[in-house]
Design a binder for these strands. Sequence first.
DNA 1: TCCTTTCGGATAGTAGAACTATCTACTGTA
DNA 2: TACAGTAGATAGTTCTACTATCCGAAAGGA
Lengths: 212, 212
Amino acid sequence: MGVMRIAELSERSGVPVPTIKYYLREGLLHRGELTSRNQARYGEAHLRRLSLVRALTDVGGLPVAAVREVLAHVDAPRSSTHNLLGRVLDAIPPAGQDGSPEEEDLARAQELVRDRGWNCHPDDPAVEGLAAVLAGYRRTGHPLGEEYLVRYAEAVEQVARVDLDTLRDTEELDEIIEGAVVGTVLGDALLAALRRLAQSRESALRAPGREN
Amino acid sequence: MGVMRIAELSERSGVPVPTIKYYLREGLLHRGELTSRNQARYGEAHLRRLSLVRALTDVGGLPVAAVREVLAHVDAPRSSTHNLLGRVLDAIPPAGQDGSPEEEDLARAQELVRDRGWNCHPDDPAVEGLAAVLAGYRRTGHPLGEEYLVRYAEAVEQVARVDLDTLRDTEELDEIIEGAVVGTVLGDALLAALRRLAQSRESALRAPGREN
DNA sequence: TCCTTTCGGATAGTAGAACTATCTACTGTA
DNA sequence: TACAGTAGATAGTTCTACTATCCGAAAGGA
């Protein structure tokens, strides 16, 4: 049951055989154990990895190259547990970091990080990502007011506490790492979906007149 | 100053002329006012629209087809203001709705919506998007616990209140609509970037031993 | 043992998205 | 009148994520 060939791996995962071969080539999936020149055996670990890859691409929307990057950190040998989470999370691209921010936006992003006591190292790519988003607000003629930015930051601190709490239950280190990756990448999609629903609700609450 | 030809529009927006022509073909940008068979004039409105398009694609990561969809709602004539925001927000794809959820996940998503009193219409695509994300958590072997889901929902309600508050300052209806679009699409990227930073901070706080 | 099926690995081809380049006919301006 | 600039059309490019074929070899049933 636990040992299978590629056809069964394909059937159980729902991923076509040629796509599995593609993932093998791209290094998203470890090669099976070769029993002869043209026979390899795959196990439950391959099946789980395949599910992870599909979740990151389909739900998380990560490009294949980014998935490889992230999985390299999942697979990396861990010498110490010290701030390992931080380094793994650094490897996950902030989704939409295109568009170069200007000095103005970068300074504002760094100021927010400082004011909230998020003393991350200043070359964190997420700071630049934040600046790029602020630049987007400004360039479209809808600059984000300071008050709102702070309130978003407060809400997000609450989110981050939940993020870290979800990892508490787990004992195994490998599981914690994978849980952090899943929680971070799928979490963005989760928050986006929940946000749409909460926006609709809040919008309806404030609408003058009747319900709906 | 306000009236220009395509070369100046390109220079001021930073978007190459062939790309502007491509956006014109795709209907992301209104055609300029034709003064003869091969001369058109563009104005400040075109410049702002171009900035909006680039923000939605580069920062928000929306595909061109989705941008066209969204802008159709921005441009639509508004007969009434009633729950107009809700309908505009519906048009924005929840980013990563691939991967079909199963009955189990759909039921859980609907249950959450009901429990929190988010009485949206049950065919809201965001509900299905939420279910798809929950399916991703489950299939990777990291199912999201009920407690955590509820805590995310609470945080997101706070976010939605900020979202709606950012629109209060504005008088003009067109500006409100555009602000809602920008706030929703760029907001996802904003929250993702802030979340990475807050995660790093929270992770460092909980790490045993020294700082960093 | 023979024979059909399946396999691993390599190479090549495909579909869609987002541009980018070229072409033609025309035109405002120096 | 020469010429750089323009609108609109069509065709080509680049990148990503697959998908299809091929080959030689091994597996598995009759």
